[in-house]
Design a protein around this nucleic acid. Sequence first.
DNA 1: CTGAAAGCGCTAACAC
DNA 2: GTGTTAGCGCTTTCAG
Lengths: 349, 349
Amino acid sequence: MPDHTAPASPRPGRRRPTILDVAAAAGVSKGLVSKVLSGSAGPSAATTQRVLAVAERMGYRKDRTATLLAQRRTRLIGVTILPSNVYHGELAEEIQAIVDAAGYETVLGAITATHDERRSIETLIDFRCEALLLLGPTMPEAELASLVENVPTVCVGRPLNLPEVDVVRADDEQGITDVVDHLVSLGHRHIAHVDGGAGHIAAVRRGAYRAAMRRHGLEAVVLPGGLTERQGAAAFEHLPSGTGITAVVAFNDRAAVGLIEALESSGIRVPDGMSVAGFDDSLMARHPRMALTTVSQSPIEQARLAVQAVIDRLNGEHQERREIVLPTRLVVRGSTAAPRTPLALRRNS
Amino acid sequence: MPDHTAPASPRPGRRRPTILDVAAAAGVSKGLVSKVLSGSAGPSAATTQRVLAVAERMGYRKDRTATLLAQRRTRLIGVTILPSNVYHGELAEEIQAIVDAAGYETVLGAITATHDERRSIETLIDFRCEALLLLGPTMPEAELASLVENVPTVCVGRPLNLPEVDVVRADDEQGITDVVDHLVSLGHRHIAHVDGGAGHIAAVRRGAYRAAMRRHGLEAVVLPGGLTERQGAAAFEHLPSGTGITAVVAFNDRAAVGLIEALESSGIRVPDGMSVAGFDDSLMARHPRMALTTVSQSPIEQARLAVQAVIDRLNGEHQERREIVLPTRLVVRGSTAAPRTPLALRRNS
DNA sequence: CTGAAAGCGCTAACAC
DNA sequence: GTGTTAGCGCTTTCAG
């Protein structure tokens, strides 16, 4: 009965060629073309050749949308990213490479002022990503849970106690502890912490700082801060003048850098007047002018493991929750030094 | 006659609900649901209410893939981005916000080692982006032309002489000229340029540097460099020792920062032993420790205009090619100063 | 105001 | 080997 063989006007206009156009031009059926294009066994060598040639000549490209609809698979892995965050940028590059090698594709969901985390994740899911990689998500756990409940997800850089979500993160507690120990061993007794704000990672680092100080029998001083240079600089305003703070452990490098800026423009030199340590070992920290003592958390390794975890999940190679905690490494540079005024109380003086 | 009312087994399994499930649950046809969901006039208030409620309750989300296929529109704008480039990150955030407000969505195409520019653009086109925003593309013009010939495209940050491609960029020539003039007015006579490599922007800046030097009757010295700190640092090796270079105009801030690093670790202080200027006015440049003299190229304005250009194209509001050149602004900071050794040959001595 | 039916471009059985 | 035929989930005329 199908006699409406009239090929719906294959105008060579602006319309991009479809599989039907290629089939017509090659004198075969669209089914065959589909097989050739997806490299599945079946078509003869001759047909394959011809179809490929025709497709090439017509500048044919498969319509991914249609393909996905038909296949019910996307081989897409969604990654949420804060574009202005260099650390995320580095991770994303690493991730892309590994995902690529595994035969999947990444799609980046940028988190911005108009596009918060929730919306970003929703968009990624709408794109039918088969798995999600969340870079340092800041959403409340419960909310996150309901959002990603049907998608294999791995969370990078933040602890998350969800049964379905894998976690790959650095050992923030250890990192902060090392910094505090380092400062104490330099002779500091009054060490403040510039807080990272409301996020979970901030809470972890803050807790680790408090614990370390307690262990040393020292008083913890937490200054309101944040993730950016500006917020780090603002912390300067909250530095209590009476308590003789001689060192600061900042939430991250950016905050540390901002704080240094504020300190030095007020005439307090670093490390002479104040020692400052960061976290991340960013490019900026490495620059000799900054020479920031900081904590490295091996982003490449994190990316590798995170991608591995999702891919394993997708391949059904593991069901149970996985939590990978990577060791951190203290990097001592020039922004920390012994306090200028030798403390009368130092034991070995 | 339609008596196959058996709703194709609406198992509440893992499968996400489709419009058919919603329709069944609300006791209407899928067509009606579609209309309600897309907010088109027609459905009665009561129906609208009910359908919306049901959809909400079922946790229904439109399948974007299917929607796009059916609509033949995606309202997607593709943006190529170098994730590790902070400047791109800033631009992307800006772009996302504006695109969003215009009722479109952005999809980011990351350019990485395994995913070069061509592939990134192809991916974006495969996603059926209706328009492309290329951030500082480095591909040869001709190749680019054939790639994007069917997609409205605007190129940000680089001149591009393609009839179909809009351009929004900063006035690099002016920026570099201002830097050279500034250095000359400080008394420098031997000013080198750290090249930005093979890209087009690099060629423009190099050319502008050469022209400016010529105008001042000075000899141009171009040092091989690149876009990164590492490459900027490497330029140090090529600094001719005999010619008494006292100032360097770097391709961008990153190269400048790298160069400063190399200089200072060799005992040459900036600006005392050497003046160094960058380009971009990045966060790093602004930091007092770096205090880099540089050129600001208003990224926000660039993003705004670029998005405006694509949207106008998409709305058919302009056909003719548009090239918008934004003025730059010289930002003088502490990395440039008068040469230490007063030059014996200065005219007015 | 609502329902039926014809696709969007492609894949995947299943025939021939 | 190759062609045919259903869909994938949604939008969109076009009738009622």
